[in-house]
Design a protein around this nucleic acid. Sequence first.
DNA 1: TAATTAATGCGAATCATTTGCAATTGATTG
DNA 2: CAATCAATTGCAAATGATTCGCATTAATTA
Lengths: 118, 118
Amino acid sequence: MSKLTKKRQAILDILKASHDAMSAAEVHAAVSDIDLATVYRSLEYLTNEKLIRRLQLGTQEARYEFQTEPHHHAICTECDRVIHFTAPDEKIKELLGVKDFAVDELEVTVRGICNHDK
Amino acid sequence: MSKLTKKRQAILDILKASHDAMSAAEVHAAVSDIDLATVYRSLEYLTNEKLIRRLQLGTQEARYEFQTEPHHHAICTECDRVIHFTAPDEKIKELLGVKDFAVDELEVTVRGICNHDK
DNA sequence: TAATTAATGCGAATCATTTGCAATTGATTG
DNA sequence: CAATCAATTGCAAATGATTCGCATTAATTA
């Protein structure tokens, strides 16, 4: 039986406090005395428990974020900032008209340019 | 000045003929006498030329597909099959209500279960 | 407390991708 | 056509992200 250990809790806290999604390396840098391999194992555990979400935002490096309500992501191709936004998933599902498919998870990723200059 | 060389054309042809998006390794296996590093460089070139599209469908391995009309992807979590579908992007954009963001690319990824058994 | 199970650290392995560099090809110009 | 310059390729090694094996430690149960 696996458990939410102290180290796993510490990692969860880091992600909870972070406004942005973090990479495993960033989490590792933010916590102290937790081996990188353990960070990876913990992130996997927390993802399975659905306490956090793993995101693959276009790069090969995964990012993790604390799981609140489901939401989507817009990535600025100029400044790499990630913006969150919610959407009426049901309506989107209708628009998509996916047939013969039991939708489990819907993820919208937007790429473009944010107004980071102002 | 870069060009669509014979090897790049061969890789493009493979992708054009493939019904599914392919990984770099799969492309490499499908062509003969093209080094893997060249495959990667070619895929990057073709992506920049917008002749193909690079997809990051949840895994850390990128997949590439021939660029036809913009469309979206549904991934079956049981059989890993990837299904394509189109959608009225403009309407989705409206639903999203992304503000202060110049949308360049809209990608919807759906995860769930397809009816692969029948 | 002994015995069992799970979690962790450490180092090495693996997988995907990129890079440096020399050899090759291709295009261009004198 | 030969000489030159630029872009492409192969090969091997490097890098970055992630995973794995295994011995050690911590936690839980009998």
